[in-house]
């Protein structure tokens, strides 16, 4: 069953205050993604992989085209009311950005709890579940009550993952989720991604490591073919 559909999607950036420079990034994207697929986005650095994910999350606006998300009905995320996108993000699409972005002073454990609260899934078992996940991701207990903003890059990335992986999303967008992790933590995260796939979650992931791609992904989308020819 298709869960994501891009129709004639184009993305350019117009830098109005830099002499109106136009960056044509992606052109004529037409594709479908089915429930349960694990898609690897590939292409050289700067080609537009993060831009692609951000458009799927409604964080970047396509310059033209439709991005349809199918849950119970069809929602074109490129042209929807704000509260519809917010609702989709709450219950349906989770996004792990390349860098952690959280409010200052909020403790790690609350950041992770908040996802469940937003999904109305927080109950008396939740704290145990959250602590288990944080421990599995090797976030020490002594850090749970601290804001992650002072943590190392790898620790921040794992908190970022915990924040989204704790939730019950149908689609996960992962931007280089293992980039700053050591081998041990990498394989832990890969196992977590695999268990999401077993639950039929649809995943779109940017990952440079060929071995990881072969291990988890069912298909590659090479953005090379969407480079506008006038570049």
């Amino acid at each position: 069953m298709k869960i994501i559909e891009l129709k004639n999607v184009n993305k350019k950036f117009i830098l109005h205050n830099q002499k109106g420079i136009v960056l044509n990034v992606l052109k004529n994207i037409n594709l479908e993604i089915k429930t349960g697929e694990c898609i690897a986005l590939v292409g050289k650095s700067g080609i537009g992989k993060s831009t692609f994910l951000k458009m799927l999350y409604g964080n970047y606006l396509p310059s033209s085209g439709e991005i349809n998300i199918y849950n119970n009905n069809k929602i074109n995320i490129a042209n929807s009311l704000e509260h519809q996108i917010i609702n989709l993000r709450k219950y349906f699409i989770g996004y792990v950005s390349q860098f952690l972005r959280v409010l200052p002073r909020v403790p790690t454990i609350e950041i992770v709890s908040d996802t469940l609260k937003q999904q109305s899934l927080f109950d008396e078992h939740s704290l145990i579940k959250i602590k288990k996940l944080l421990s599995e991701l090797n976030i020490q207990e002594s850090m749970w009550n601290l804001s992650p903003l002072t943590f190392s890059g790898g620790e921040q990335q794992r908190v970022n993952l915990a924040k989204t992986l704790i939730g019950n999303y149908s689609i996960l967008l992962l931007d280089e989720p293992t980039a700053s992790l050591d081998d041990m933590n990498k394989s832990i995260v890969i196992d977590m991604i695999k268990s999401k796939l077993k639950k039929n979650v649809t995943i779109i992931v940017i990952v440079h490591d060929n071995k990881i791609r072969n291990e988890i992904c069912t298909r590659e989308i090479n953005l090379e073919k969407y480079i506008p020819n006038d570049n």
Partner: peptide
Amino acid sequence: TGLTDRVLDDPQHS
């Protein structure tokens, strides 16, 4: 006008 993070991260107007 638009979703807050969209307006701030991908602003369209000069």
